[in-house]
């Protein structure tokens, strides 16, 4: 009922969920082997930043949306420059893409006829 077979592969979410639960159980077991001496509110919870003190922020630091993946975006900057150049926001360009694709499709279809 829940299984899904593509003819070459199988996907069963129930089995997957059972496995997941199993992994969860195992991880809890592993967790229980941990150091019992851990205490909140002591130096143990301090973040270790190369031995320096954690910088003080008034009510915590928030990683904003643009802070994520800047490395990846920077790495893909050549691609992004090009793709952003497509998205000009000008209505004529929208239509231009449409006409371009239309011409291409015409050529392909008529050639393949």
């Amino acid at each position: 009922m829940s299984g899904l077979s593509s003819g070459f592969g199988v996907w069963n979410p129930i089995a997957w969920a059972l496995l997941f639960v199993g992994i969860l159980v195992v991880s809890f077991i592993v967790r229980s082997f941990g150091n019992k001496g851990y205490k909140r509110g002591t130096g143990q919870t301090k973040v270790f930043l190369s031995g320096n003190d954690e910088p003080e922020t008034s009510n915590g630091l928030h990683v904003r949306g643009d802070h994520l993946y800047w490395g990846m975006i920077d790495g893909l900057s050549a691609y992004y420059r090009r793709v952003k150049a497509w998205h000009t926001g000008i209505l004529s360009d929208y239509a231009a893409w449409f006409v371009g694709v239309l011409g291409l499709v015409f050529v392909i279809l008529v050639l393949a006829r």
Binding site: W86, Y94, W97, F98, F106, L109, R113
Partner: peptide, 27 residues
């Protein structure tokens, strides 16, 4: 499947693909 039919197919394909939002007519 004459030439006219192919032109019609092209128009339908592209027009509907645009209405569905396929790149590069997704803007």
């Amino acid at each position: 499947g004459s030439l006219t039919d192919m032109v019609a197919l092209g128009l339908l394909l592209t027009g509907l693909a645009m209405k569905a939002g396929a790149v590069p007519m997704h803007m």
